[in-house]
Design a protein around this nucleic acid. Structure first.
Lengths: 163, 163
DNA sequence: ATAGGCTATGGATGACATTGATCGTAAAAT
DNA sequence: ATTTTACGATCAATGTCATCCATAGCCTAT
């Protein structure tokens, strides 16, 4: 991981349709070594996957709901069960186990509040939840899948040995 | 948008490296019409972009922090200014204007709590915030960029006319 | 029946990805 | 100072797909 790798990752995080040649030009390499770097980034797991992002309005899920959950159950079994069930709902796009007041926080995407209510009923039918509080987003001001690369650790040189 | 389109979107949402031929086979089309559908999905804006997802551990940002913000300022100008500044921080990957108690909710990704503290100081130096409360995620149980396609509206047939 | 909309099929072309080989350079190691 | 070592540049060859075109078959609705 050096400066060029960071640049490459940053480009691909924003637009994975860029060709090797285009990336190479931007980062100041020729295509072959640039391509090889991308390979290594993939092999070593820096790049986990490439996905297409879909327009939420077009597919009728414009609403974000944040669901804060508190529970009395704190056993392994319960967590396992809870996680399994929640993960099955495609509407749940994020789920975190939190520190502090709230035990779990999840983001749910749905068409509207009515659809959320339907979802909610389906959910509580499947898991026992103690204290649930839902907050609706009025506006999504920022959303990105691109992570900050400023904290990535520089291995400098003498790296690519282990083949 | 029919059933095949939904399947295609769902596949590409999960893995954008699939070739047209592979997708075609899965959804039960031959490559040419499948390719055309994908083109149209892109032209009509269903697919907004293709991106690479990066391993957060590898690039040293394993920690999620949710920041709930309450403010007294509710003017357009303040919101604008606030949004502009926050969007500049690459650590902030999501930002929502909320209904209810909390005015804004954001998700921040950083290496650890110390780094969050640094971020926090940088932030409050740039914007005046009334009431900020941070919650740390202990574990990310689910995270996906794939949206549910079950709500997408079926236009059935007779669509692709407007060219 | 018949036109229109959609798909299947096959082929041609071109853009890239992918791989290998060779050479040059600058820094690190001896 | 000389030898490794670790890249990168360049060239070449191959292969894989995307892309485009042209033709033909199959339903469905008028």
């Amino acid at each position: 991981m050096d400066d060029i790798d960071r640049k490459i990752l940053n480009l691909l995080q924003k637009d994975a349709t860029l060709s090797t040649a285009e990336i190479a030009e931007i980062v100041g390499l020729s295509t072959t070594p640039c391509w090889r770097r991308i390979q290594i980034l993939e092999q070593e797991g820096y790049i986990t996957r490439r996905v297409a992002l879909v327009d939420r309005n077009k597919i009728n899920v414009p609403l974000d709901v944040f669901v804060a959950i508190r529970t009395n159950e704190h056993s392994f079994e319960w967590l396992d069960e809870f996680a399994r069930i929640v993960c099955e709902f495609p509407e749940v796009v994020e789920l975190y186990r939190m520190s502090g007041e709230i035990d779990y926080l999840m983001r749910v995407v749905v068409p509207d509040m009515a659809a959320y209510d339907t979802f909610y009923k389906k959910l509580i039918k499947k898991v026992q939840l103690t204290d649930v509080s839902s907050s609706f987003a009025m506006e999504r001001i920022k959303y990105t899948t691109a992570l900050p690369l400023d904290y990535a650790i520089d291995e400098g040189r003498q790296r690519r040995k282990r083949n």
